[in-house]
């Protein structure tokens, strides 16, 4: 006949055993996941470095300048293309003053 304490002991042993197995399984699973993530990060980082280098190669100032000149027909900004707003107001005033009413 199984007495109460014996039953408790057996029950505890079973619970602890199952818990241990579960924990071990959980840890192993997560460690594998972590390793996979780490590998993925390393690979992604390596890919990113190559992509950044490629992007930088494509963004070379000499290449951009060539494209701007040949494809976009952009030109250098000359000092005459830039106006100070105050000077612009002054110039407008002087032109207006010269125009006969």
């Amino acid at each position: 006949m199984i007495r109460y304490p014996s039953f408790l002991v057996v029950f505890l042993i079973v619970v602890v055993g199952i818990s241990l197995y579960q924990i071990k399984f959980f840890i192993t699973q997560n460690e594998v996941a972590l390793k996979t993530i780490k590998t993925k990060i390393v690979n992604a980082k390596s890919d990113l470095e190559i992509l950044n280098a490629e992007l930088s190669y494509l963004k070379r100032p000499d290449r951009i300048e060539k494209i701007a000149l040949t494809k976009l027909e952009l030109k250098e900004i000359l000092p005459t293309d830039i106006w100070n707003l105050k000077d612009l107001v002054e110039a407008t005033k002087s032109i207006n003053a010269r125009v006969p009413k």
Partner: peptide, 9 residues
């Protein structure tokens, strides 16, 4: 922040 030198595998 334009890349001038980097290391690749």
């Amino acid at each position: 922040k334009e890349l001038l030198a980097t290391t690749i595998s």
